[in-house]
Amino acid sequence: MKKTWLFVTPLSLDAIGGVARVVNALAAEMHQVSLNDVDWKPMVFVLDWQALYPVSEIRNGVSCVRCRVPPPDMITGGKQAALKPLYALQYLLLKRFLRRHNVGVVNVHYVTPMSFALIKVARQLGIKVIASFHGADLAEIESASTAPTFWPEYLDMCDVLVGCSNNYAERLRRSITSINADLAKKVTAVANGIDINAMALADKGAVWPEHFIQQSLVVSVGTFEHKKGHDTLIRAFAQVASELQDTHLVIVGRDGPEYQALELLVESLGLAGRVTLLKNCPYPKVLALYCLATLYVSASRVEPFGLVMAEAGLASLPVVATKTDGATELLAHRQTGWLVDIDDVLSLSKAIVYLLNDNDNGGRGELAESLQRSVTRSLSWRKALDAYLALA
């Protein structure tokens, strides 16, 4: 009988963002290979506070469940005494759930306190626990206000701690060493994958403004939040726009706390006709936008892996990126991409102008071709899945 690999995430599977895509892709890949030669079957557990009772569905052949779990203070002796009987019952139901589905691995993607109860139950049942970090989840561990109290116990219950790139795993190792050096020995790296056939999903019927088609289009994708560095990109593009008239910047992302501030920044710099901010754009339409673009730019301050940069490479786009963990691992400067320092507005604008001015398409085209070859050769969800299975 196949054992169940339980992918756990606090994020909606419909969310526009990298973690949801990672969980969906790994589960779908495991489902495909489990039909033939793998001793595991996938299941997805979404930590959803609104789902007091389990809500089940099938997505791409994979069983998915949304359910509330007891918060950490209910397990560790919190103050809400009136609710403890309810959470005690949920705790027992979690045990029954893991046993009934023959769960052999609990694999948390995007680590938060919400998954504490589930991994505590898993450890009591002797189930292996793998915690996969993807970005902002590490920031909470690095916070001095939470690390000394909660995280040592959480991390101690995990068998393996995964960073989604080699560089990011090293950062994870350093951060955890400051809590407990022995726990840092659990850290390893598993690079995310990419669907090499993703461009077939592009929305071929997408309708765009005429200037998107007629001008050189610079595209960036990322949630409208501080860490994505959209403000730096907009300031850099102000210089680009003053030098190159037939250019337009499109920033696509999930709605976030910086959206209104970025709108005001665009207005204040006189870029209202030169910059477009698109919220919550469907994934097939984002892929279609890549097909129109001349250049992809990532100005992120933090990027553990850089899935969208890899996808841009898959779409044969040259990439300019800031030197984040993910970008420096994915891109070799002037070979498969162009790297600049984080928050360096001047260097970013110069790199964009340089590549857009490459009218003969020589250097720009070579960068794009080299990145596409690198991405298709080194990244796939099957490789990522095999790396995870090796940890079981």
Rank of each mutant, 00 (worst) to 15 (best):
D231G: 14
A191K: 08
L217S: 04
F212H: 12
V302I: 14
S300Y: 13
A299F: 09
V219Q: 04
G313C: 01
A312K: 02
I251F: 02
P257I: 13
V187W: 06
P209S: 03
V250M: 12
I234R: 01
H226T: 11
V221R: 06
I194Y: 02
K227T: 13
G253V: 02
L287W: 01
I213V: 11
L295R: 03
G306I: 02
A202E: 00
R254C: 10
P257R: 13
T232A: 15
A236F: 04
L269M: 12
L201E: 15
V275C: 06
Q239W: 13
E311S: 03
H226K: 13
Y259W: 15
P304S: 12
L262D: 05
L271P: 01
L278M: 13
F224N: 04
K279E: 11
H230P: 08
W208D: 02
Y290E: 05
Q245P: 06
N280Y: 09
V219Y: 03
S242M: 12
L307V: 15
W208S: 00
L271C: 06
A312C: 05
V190E: 01
G253N: 03
D203I: 01
G222C: 05
A238G: 10
T294W: 05
D195G: 01
K227P: 07
Y283I: 14
I251N: 06
V218A: 05
Q214L: 14
R274V: 00
F224C: 05
L249G: 03
G270D: 02
L278Y: 06
T247P: 01
V240G: 01
I194K: 00
W208A: 00
F305K: 05
R235A: 08
L292V: 01
Y296E: 01
N192H: 15
K228D: 04
P209M: 07
V221P: 02
G229K: 09
G273R: 10
G229P: 12
A312E: 00
V302K: 03
V252T: 03
I196Q: 10
E258N: 09
T276M: 07
L269I: 12
S300I: 08
Q239V: 09
A184G: 12
A206P: 06
L271R: 08
R254M: 14
D231Q: 12
V221K: 00
H230I: 11
A241K: 10
E267S: 14
I234C: 07
K186S: 07
D255L: 11
L244T: 10
D195M: 00
P282V: 10
I251K: 02
Y290P: 00
G253K: 07
K186N: 05
P257V: 12
R301M: 13
A261K: 15
I213K: 08
N197I: 07
L265T: 10
V275S: 06
I234G: 07
V308F: 02
V266R: 03
I194V: 12
M199Y: 06
A191I: 07
H226W: 09
L264E: 11
K185M: 13
A241H: 08
L244F: 07
P304G: 08
L292D: 04
V207Y: 08
E311R: 00
G193D: 01
K227L: 13
N280S: 14
A288Q: 01
I251E: 02
A299W: 05
G313P: 00
A189F: 05
T232V: 15
L262W: 04
